[in-house]
Amino acid sequence: MQDIRAATLDDIAALTELERAFPEEDRFSQRTWARLMRGNSAILLSDGDGGLTGAAVLLFRRTSRVARLYSLSVAEAARGTGLSDRLLEKCEDISRQRSCCTLRLEVRETNSRAKRLYERHGYRVMARAAGYYPDGEAALKMEKPLSGLSREVQ
């Protein structure tokens, strides 16, 4: 099993490389990664034998108890291993630790694999946003109420 850890500025090149396999409009630049790391966020990574295998980005607002899963990426070679489940669970735990009561996200309407992941974890569609992505595709806005203590605290 791969360990999940917090990202550092030293990971920016590997994060950029991880996303190279994704559509260009879905990738973050090195500048964006650096901005995210300096902001009110949590960036989690999973390392494997061949390098970075997955990443998740959580965004927080100081005045809100709602966290936002901004991105969850898993390398092609690590798909089907349960890594996306583990990253998502860790994001939920971190959100609870920060006293958030809800985790929200957006997912491409055509991304059936991701939609199944989120539904399996209790996320429900709250709205559809037409033309949400730069290529014009719609997004499904999903959320999950977070209750109880984090797994690490229990």
Results as ranks from 00 to 15, higher is better:
residue 46 S to D: 06
residue 64 S to V: 03
residue 40 N to R: 14
residue 8 T to Y: 01
residue 34 A to G: 13
residue 56 A to P: 01
residue 16 T to F: 06
residue 96 R to C: 03
residue 120 R to K: 15
residue 8 T to G: 09
residue 139 A to W: 00
residue 55 A to T: 12
residue 150 S to V: 00
residue 96 R to V: 02
residue 86 R to N: 07
residue 69 L to H: 02
residue 42 A to Q: 13
residue 9 L to N: 07
residue 58 L to Y: 06
residue 16 T to Q: 10
residue 16 T to C: 12
residue 115 K to H: 04
residue 23 P to M: 06
residue 103 L to G: 01
residue 152 E to C: 03
residue 50 G to T: 15
residue 102 T to A: 08
residue 128 R to Y: 00
residue 141 K to A: 12
residue 154 Q to R: 15
residue 85 D to I: 01
residue 77 A to Y: 09
residue 24 E to L: 14
residue 40 N to F: 11
residue 31 R to Y: 08
residue 91 C to P: 04
residue 99 S to R: 13
residue 39 G to R: 08
residue 58 L to N: 05
residue 49 D to C: 12
residue 133 Y to M: 05
residue 21 A to I: 08
residue 78 A to W: 00
residue 125 V to I: 11
residue 8 T to N: 02
residue 57 V to N: 10
residue 99 S to Y: 10
residue 89 E to Q: 15
residue 154 Q to L: 15
residue 79 R to G: 04
residue 146 L to T: 01
residue 116 R to V: 10
residue 113 R to D: 09
residue 69 L to N: 02
residue 76 E to Q: 12
residue 129 A to W: 09
residue 103 L to T: 03
residue 101 C to I: 13
residue 130 A to C: 07
residue 148 G to N: 00
residue 117 L to H: 00
residue 55 A to L: 09
residue 116 R to H: 12
residue 11 D to C: 05
residue 120 R to A: 14
residue 51 G to K: 09
residue 69 L to A: 04
residue 13 A to R: 11
residue 100 C to A: 09
residue 45 L to P: 02
residue 30 Q to R: 13
residue 8 T to M: 02
residue 97 Q to S: 11
residue 36 L to E: 13
residue 140 L to Q: 06
residue 150 S to P: 00
residue 86 R to G: 07
residue 130 A to H: 12
residue 81 T to H: 05
residue 61 R to T: 11
residue 30 Q to I: 04
residue 5 R to P: 00
residue 119 E to R: 13
residue 133 Y to P: 00
residue 129 A to S: 12
residue 57 V to Y: 07
residue 104 R to E: 14
residue 147 S to Y: 00
residue 79 R to I: 04
residue 18 L to K: 05
residue 112 S to A: 14
residue 33 W to Q: 05
residue 132 Y to W: 02
residue 81 T to P: 02
residue 73 S to A: 14
residue 151 R to D: 12
residue 118 Y to L: 01
residue 91 C to D: 06
residue 75 A to H: 06
residue 136 G to A: 03
residue 137 E to K: 02
residue 94 I to C: 02
residue 142 M to V: 01
residue 30 Q to S: 14
residue 53 T to E: 15
residue 147 S to M: 03
residue 122 G to I: 03
residue 118 Y to I: 01
residue 71 S to K: 15
residue 154 Q to Y: 10
residue 86 R to I: 05
residue 115 K to W: 03
residue 98 R to V: 06
residue 42 A to I: 08
residue 59 L to G: 10
residue 6 A to Y: 06
residue 118 Y to K: 02
residue 9 L to G: 07
residue 104 R to W: 10
residue 15 L to A: 02
residue 36 L to D: 06
residue 14 A to Q: 07
residue 101 C to Y: 13
residue 132 Y to R: 02
residue 83 L to Y: 01
residue 140 L to F: 11
residue 12 I to Q: 00
residue 49 D to P: 15
residue 33 W to S: 07
residue 40 N to L: 11
residue 131 G to A: 09
residue 53 T to N: 15
residue 52 L to M: 14
residue 9 L to H: 08
residue 45 L to M: 09
residue 145 P to N: 11
residue 137 E to G: 05
residue 116 R to E: 12
residue 16 T to V: 13
residue 82 G to W: 03
residue 149 L to G: 01
residue 152 E to P: 00
residue 99 S to D: 13
residue 66 V to I: 15
residue 51 G to L: 11
residue 81 T to I: 04
residue 21 A to T: 11
residue 109 E to L: 14
residue 54 G to Y: 05
residue 97 Q to V: 10
